[in-house]
Design a protein around this nucleic acid. Sequence first.
DNA 1: GCCTTACTACGATGGCTATCGTACGAGCCG
DNA 2: CGGCTCGTACGATAGCCATCGTAGTAAGGC
Lengths: 119, 119
Amino acid sequence: MTTAAPAPSTRDLPHPAREEIRLEGVLHALSDPVRLRIVRELAHEGVALSCSHFDLPVTKSTTTHHFRVLRESGVIRQIYEGTAKMNGLRRDDLDDLFPGLLDCVLTAAGRQAGRRLGN
Amino acid sequence: MTTAAPAPSTRDLPHPAREEIRLEGVLHALSDPVRLRIVRELAHEGVALSCSHFDLPVTKSTTTHHFRVLRESGVIRQIYEGTAKMNGLRRDDLDDLFPGLLDCVLTAAGRQAGRRLGN
DNA sequence: GCCTTACTACGATGGCTATCGTACGAGCCG
DNA sequence: CGGCTCGTACGATAGCCATCGTAGTAAGGC
């Protein structure tokens, strides 16, 4: 019965509706290196990941802050799953609002990272 | 003075080279409403425009600041032309570094503006 | 019941930044 | 020359923001 449905209803996190997502907010969220890295990894894995999955060069407090910025700007969706908090990209919403934007940013980020490494 | 300056103008502005343009910097530059508006207008007109061409809801000091941010992040190129300073999008550089990114952002901004007006 | 794991909330802090006003320099034009 | 327009520089200010540490809550395992 509660296998595929959102069972843990104890804590619910506020997310902006699709129409409330603002381009400026998304761009600002993506303009931070730590957050861009998170988004890149989420896109690369393709599935929702727990916060602890990431190995970021900041403390856990700061990590929480970055995930909140991403959620409040509409870039990711956060759902509690037991003790873990799963983070998933809001690909459908973003692609509908800003077609191609996410892919462009991800491609650009990948190219930039590649340029820095071996070029 | 009669300094026999070889340059067309005694004042030359520092621009980042193409390889120095960082994605995070560009996204941050575009995440400000005033700057996004400037970039949209530059893209729409398609030619370099003087600073005074824009009717922005901020003072001239702040306008100068925003243009500098755009220049230092690599989004625009600024050239003195007599008493005016002409601002042009660095389309070629941006399209080469981040293919499609600028167009995606501009399209998204246009759609968002349209949604706010009457839709 | 207790301990561990996962994450949050709160307060502090230093830095960045958007904004302004005022004073100034650089070209044009009467 | 004297002013006029365009844009800059500098200083100030207020707000945001990335970061941290510490203390606390929620869920699950022993």
